[in-house]
Amino acid sequence: MTTAAPTVGGRTRLSQSQSLVSRLVGFATSQEVVLLLVVVLLFTVVGNANPRFLAERNVLNIFNGNAYIAVAAVGMTMVIISRNIDISVGSLIGVLGTISGAMAVNGYPIWSSWLVPILLGGLVGAVIGFMVAYLRIPSIVVTLGLLSILKGGLITVTNGEWITDMPADYFLAQMRTPELSLPGITIPAIPSPIIIMVILTLLAALWMRYSATGRAIYAVGGNAEAARLSGISEKRIIMTVFIINGLCVGIAAVLWATQLSIIQSTVPAGLELQVITSAVVGGVSILGGIGTTVGAMLAAILLSAINSALVFINVSPYWFRSVVGVLILITVLTDMLRRRRTQI
């Protein structure tokens, strides 16, 4: 907890009469724009150093292969804005992905092998939400416990056996839209993960900005007491947030599983960290109350671009996790400094 500076004489942070210039400055220094610039800069610099980095295959892989992280980061954004955390996402993606693959192999209809993991994700989210909101266990403990239950449970149940030979029409993540030839321009075929990532991110961003429930998430994260006094049920909001998060994790799991030809029945190592990092670097304030899903998506893209770039500039990928750690620290520090400046 930081000590909040008292507001002297009812001075408020946002005034109605903000000038156009200061609004423009605010927009240009917003996390989303900064991230976008960093991504562009990274592609330019690394692309100059090694043109193969910009090969269509690699760029596509950066956006497409890690879209599931951005999808999971949508849910994580809401969770962190409500002043909670979920460190079990990585394990849950592993478990739900394995369930999806196992269903497809064992002759269940393809649509159900996509749908059931998503619903199960929502169910697990509801359980977490119940424990956090109604039983008052901190989310860090609930999800820490759940992480080990899921991780250990997955290997115990599957014995680490790989799932292969999924039916040909199972691979949702490898599908593309047909190429559209309009007079004048042709729209290239877009892989489905990118479409799902973009649509989900924008939907969530709009919902959080304009719907009553969406606004309530910010209210609960910003000042739980004030939210309660203005008639918002904190418990219901936290339940909702974790259920949505579970659904997002379910979708992410399906995208993850359907891009693999072999599902290894293990939990991808360090995945939760990548999801949390995306949300935090994307501008979600760790003190709750601030952030957007668009920033999280851009941060997820930045992370996978960095991961890929390391190889192209001849740096061992073993350093990736240090980069992630430093990136979180830098973002959090700038966030703290920014808040300190606006408060005083």
Binding site: M1, T2, I85, I87, I140, G270, L273, I276, T277, V280, I286, L287, S316, Y318, W319, F320, R321, S322, V323, V324, G325, V326, I328, L329, V332, L333, M336
Partner: peptide, 26 residues
Amino acid sequence: LGVPPLITTLATLALYRGLAEGISQA
């Protein structure tokens, strides 16, 4: 710097493990 312990140590969890991996190169 006033960063909450949870976030700080989550970041250094990645950082320190990353250093270990980077130094050892497996």
